[in-house]
């Protein structure tokens, strides 16, 4: 149980750090900023989806479907920036 808490704690810490990094970078100037903030959001999504939701153990069809859906979603949003 202890190793489980530490392993999942590392994922939680990564989510917190990414959240704070995304937040502070959003105030910076530069055309890359919006893409960086979006990319950080995508990484956080996958961390929660695969680790917290345990989708890494799900059928590969679900994993592929969700990954493709998110890439299309973020790709479309990126194009509109």
């Amino acid at each position: 149980m202890k190793s489980f808490i530490i392993k999942e704690g590392a994922v939680w810490l990564a989510l917190v750090v990414l959240t704070v990094v995304g937040f502070y970078n959003s105030g910076a100037s530069g055309s890359y900023v919006a893409y960086l903030v979006l990319a950080i959001g995508l990484v956080k999504f996958f961390l929660i989806f695969f680790d917290f939701m345990e989708m890494k153990h799900a059928h590969w069809v679900w994993q592929i479907a969700m990954t493709l859906f998110m890439l299309v979603l973020f790709g479309t949003i990126s194009l509109s920036l």
Partner: peptide, 22 residues
Amino acid sequence: GSAFWHMCDLIWVLLFPILYLI
């Protein structure tokens, strides 16, 4: 039940950058 809660989390991590940051 946990999956439902994580879904709220998932939606928010998308909503936060799109609505508040970019």
